[in-house]
């Protein structure tokens, strides 16, 4: 997700300004999503494009025109209409996009993990990062408290660089860079004579190592100008990110996007990581993935 200066001449900087694809639905929050997206597009220097997946009728077209007139501070917004499965259409339309933005439910129902919602499916299949807005602000403000959850096994420097760019653009109060640390079956060692101190030591030592690996990555990314806190969260992947975001009143949670391929029955039955976070959004969520090289 690049940050470019919209005033720059594309030919001079070598890369044209990026694009933000905003998915509009026939829902009451669509205006707020458009407004939030418009603010963010200015902050990130991205061109904005609106998309509705559904039949184009004069009434619906008029409705979106009115919505955009009320929501955007500058004129010029128009909506592209396409039909088909939403995730397929987005996957196609967002080929040249740097960010997809759409509204989402805060909480999925009990079977949400099994029968994926639109937002969840788009986050899984979009070719670029996806921003889900569960409760867009009527008076959009920059994201001030960011929580970036790095992959538990191999944190991506590319993701970190994008997060830092976003943090600089939004002039954050605090960027929390965290890693969830799951130690499966550690409690079972108690049955084999391990004591609580040993299991606690194992947790703390691994947490320390994880924090310092992340800090190394951040130092290598020249993250000096951004206020950053590094944490490792012992507990279940996906769930700890939600708890931490709530405790720190985060307004944007950034997580690695779930894998593109269809999730297995097992993963649907026992969601973990981003899949689990997507079921219960504590705030706006950016599912990050590397952009496809053209």
């Amino acid at each position: 997700m690049p940050v470019s200066n919209p005033q720059d001449d594309p030919g001079v900087v070598g890369r044209p300004p990026g694009e933000m694809l905003v998915l509009l639905a026939l829902s009451p929050t669509s205006g707020l999503v458009a407004r939030e997206a418009s603010r963010l597009s200015r902050s990130l220097g991205l061109r904005i494009r609106f998309l509705h997946v559904g039949a184009r009728t004069p009434a619906i077209h008029r409705r979106f025109q009115t919505l955009l007139e009320h929501s955007l501070t500058e004129p010029g917004g128009d909506v592209t209409f396409r039909t088909g499965r939403i995730e397929d259409v987005v996957a196609e339309e967002a080929q040249a996009s740097d960010l997809v933005v759409l509204g989402a439910l805060e909480q999925e129902g009990p079977l949400g993990a099994f029968f994926s919602s639109v937002a969840r499916r788009v986050a899984r299949t979009a070719p670029c990062p996806t921003l889900l807005l569960p409760s867009p602000n009527p008076n959009p403000e920059p994201f001030r408290r960011l929580v970036a959850v790095m992959d538990p096994s191999t944190p991506s420097p590319e993701m970190l660089r994008d997060v830092l760019e976003l943090a600089r653009a939004e002039q954050v109060e605090m960027l929390h860079v965290v890693q969830e640390l799951e130690l499966p079956a550690l409690n079972l060692a108690l049955e084999e004579g391990a004591d609580l101190d040993q299991t606690e030591e194992e947790r703390r030592v691994n947490a320390l190592a994880a924090r310092h690996r992340l800090a190394n990555l951040l130092e290598d990314c020249q993250a000096d100008q951004v206020p950053i806190r590094v944490e490792s969260l012992a507990g279940r992947e996906g769930l700890e990110a939600i708890r931490y975001s709530q405790e720190n009143s985060a307004d944007l949670l950034i997580v690695p996007a779930p894998e593109r391929d269809q999730s297995t029955v097992l993963e649907r039955l026992f969601p973990r990581g981003t899949d689990l976070t997507l079921l219960n959004l504590p705030c706006a969520l950016l599912a990050w993935r590397p952009r496809r090289t053209p």
Partner: peptide
């Protein structure tokens, strides 16, 4: 036996390594 394996990995400091996981 998961409990034995967990204890061995803990004692050998292999818990969070790729092999341990």
């Amino acid at each position: 036996a998961l409990p034995v394996i967990a204890k061995i990995l803990m004692d050998l400091h292999l818990f969070r390594t790729d092999l341990g996981m």
